[in-house]
């Protein structure tokens, strides 16, 4: 049993961390967040090096690597809150790849994999608000069960931009157009999309822990760094626990997608439930541990909180996934009894 990354995966992680660290600094994120724009330069660059297609099969223009590699990129981009439509694009690509017909794959995957097209995903019953929908070329709508869905070309639809709390991922209401039903294994694609979202959340958490620990070591009150007070240090410890717990479940789910797909459905639900909760809790604690500064616009903590909130509800909140976990566990218990 080995939870470590292999040499190639570690290379990917190292390259990603360096690139994202340089191109998506806190200043750049703030600049784009305040303008409500995507960093098109960075997005173009990511497309050129094939990141959006890392897990897409080579025959569809991707790199043909796995979910573990995709999760690494999601995590690194999440850690920086990079203002690029990476997550919505790879989520849409995963669902089209597994749920789409040959024609649908041929139409969308090569462009999505190369970053020439931007994707977005949304729950069909979430009143047509699509995270990242303002700039998407293709929108995948998934029903509540996660077992069926449709794909809509934005060019044919009515897209009305909406100001949502996370401006780094411009949202829109998407209506009309001509949704085409996805007839393949939509659930397999949705599970992979859930893992990608959960991986981004782990990155958001990780960055929040680092930022908060650095702050409470510096900030002094009563003549001592506030991080020495257990009311603060224990909160930081809890942030780490929540992050590591989610990370372990995301690692497992990503590995299942590549090596044990029969276990992916449950693993993805557990990962999304834990990561959604962790994202909210950890970024909330980050604001709290920063004190008054944390509540200000310029402290940059709020971008994390806002991204976490958007990801937490994307393709179902923690509660929906927890309920699914309970149903799957109950089915296992019942079959063990009858076996």
């Amino acid at each position: 049993m080995d939870f470590g990354l292999n040499d190639d995966q570690r290379d990917i992680q190292g390259t990603a961390r360096a690139l994202v660290g340089e191109r998506a600094s806190a200043e750049r994120v703030r600049e784009h967040a305040e303008a409500g724009t995507t960093d098109t330069g960075l997005w173009k660059e990511l497309g050129e090096i094939g990141w959006p297609g890392i897990a897409v099969a080579e025959e569809h223009g991707g790199q043909g690597l796995g979910m573990v590699e995709l999760a690494i990129l999601c995590e690194e981009l999440g850690r920086a809150i990079a203002p690029v439509p990476f997550l919505p694009t790879v989520a849409a690509a995963a669902i089209i790849e597994h749920g789409g017909s040959d024609e649908q794959r041929a139409r969308w995957l090569p462009d999505l994999a190369a970053g020439r097209a931007i994707g977005a995903v949304a729950s069909a019953d979430s009143a047509d608000l699509v995270v990242g929908g303002a700039e998407a070329d293709v929108v995948v709508l998934v029903d509540r069960s996660g077992a069926s869905g449709a794909v809509v070309a934005a060019a044919d639809a009515t897209v009305e931009p909406v100001d949502a709390i996370d401006p780094t991922r411009p949202a829109a209401r998407v209506s009309g157009g001509s949704p085409e039903l996805l007839s393949g294994d939509v659930a397999a694609g949705v599970d992979r999309a859930l893992v990608a979202i959960a991986a981004e959340l782990v990155g958001v958490c990780e960055g929040s822990v680092e930022m908060t620990v650095a702050y409470v070591k510096e900030r002094k009150q009563f003549g001592t760094p506030v991080g020495a007070f257990q009311a603060v240090s224990h909160k930081c410890a809890q942030m780490l626990l929540d992050t590591e717990r989610a990370r372990a479940l995301v690692s497992q789910a990503a590995w299942c997608a590549d090596a044990a797909p029969e276990r992916l459905h449950e693993a993805a639900a557990m990962a999304k439930a834990a990561a959604s909760d962790a994202g909210r809790e950890v970024t909330s604690s980050a604001i709290q541990a920063h004190g008054g500064i944390g509540f200000t616009w310029e402290a940059d903590v709020h971008w994390r909180y806002k991204r976490a909130q958007m990801d937490a509800v994307l393709l179902g909140g923690a509660g929906a996934h927890r309920a699914r976990v309970a149903q799957l566990a109950a089915a296992n218990v019942r079959s063990a009894v009858t076996a």
Partner: peptide, 20 residues
């Protein structure tokens, strides 16, 4: 279901963290 699913998920993360 919510709390059962939560505890089941926590239990799985305990197993994974222990093995890790």
């Amino acid at each position: 279901a919510g709390e059962l699913g939560e505890l089941h998920t926590r239990c799985e993360s305990i197993r994974l963290l222990a093995w890790k």
